[in-house]
Design a protein around this nucleic acid. Structure first.
Lengths: 133, 133
DNA sequence: CTCTGTGCAAAGCGTTTGCAAACGA
DNA sequence: TCGTTTGCAAACGCTTTGCACAGAG
């Protein structure tokens, strides 16, 4: 009984081999889009259907096991839900880097100023990574 | 010769009445998605085609006259390109509010730490607005 | 006059749905 | 065993394309 089996069950999802494989690849790459995930999982499950990938992505997002990152000019990528963090997207090579950034102060400022209860922060910096600039 | 005529020409786009109407509605609402824009422009141009809306949105985004805002769990909205600012999205009523927020300091910190040339910042706070919370 | 934009219909593509069989708990 | 998941095929919905005609500059 591996780690992802537990994580799935904790999120009220049955631990099928297809789901476990999906999580293994998402974890391995850190962030992955649907296509890339599908082609990777196919290596292990030749007959897996794209419909299965979509159904599972959707149920895992609904159960907050996965988080969808929407990127400018790119397909969304999915990651295993983790602590608040942000992303750097290289416009040239498409590489995505996780960064820890503390914007608590800004969040509080906004909450007070606008009387708005902030539940989630989506922050993406795009530009050029060190290899591409 | 109205304001939007000039703006279109400055962005190397011909000032057609359809485009001007699109910009009038985008400006009026501040942010708008494709459907809502289409239905609004139809009031003025009964025979306008959705294809025209898409073609124009795409060329205006390419020419940086418009900016696409990608939102969690919502369709993208478009706005006339303006100074760096962020958005508050109410998860309940769907309302979107522009906010001025200074994250220059964070941006610099990230550029230095990661050796990353930041060109654009996409920041969306989602939660509950004052009416919904 | 020339080149670009418009509207229409059709094509394209990513995503979802319905269903029977397989499978997890 | 019971309820959920899988894979397949078909349906769907949003977006793009091709083309003939209209319109901007």
């Amino acid at each position: 009984m591996n780690n992802f089996t537990n994580i799935l069950r904790e999120h009220n999802l049955k631990a099928t081999p297809q789901r476990i494989a999906m999580l293994e690849y998402i974890d391995y790459y850190g962030h992955i889009n649907i296509d890339k995930l599908y082609h990777n999982v196919q290596k292990k499950f030749k007959s897996i259907s794209l419909a299965t990938i979509y159904k599972n992505i959707n149920s895992m997002v609904e159960n907050m096991l996965l988080f969808e990152v929407k990127l400018p000019n790119e397909k969304s990528v999915y990651e295993i839900t983790k602590q608040n963090h942000s992303h750097l997207l290289c416009e040239k090579c498409g590489d995505i880097i996780d960064i820890d950034i503390n914007i608590e102060d800004k969040t509080k400022e906004i909450s007070l100023k606008n009387n708005f209860e902030v539940k989630q922060v989506n922050l993406v910096f795009s530009g050029l990574c060190k290899n591409c600039s």
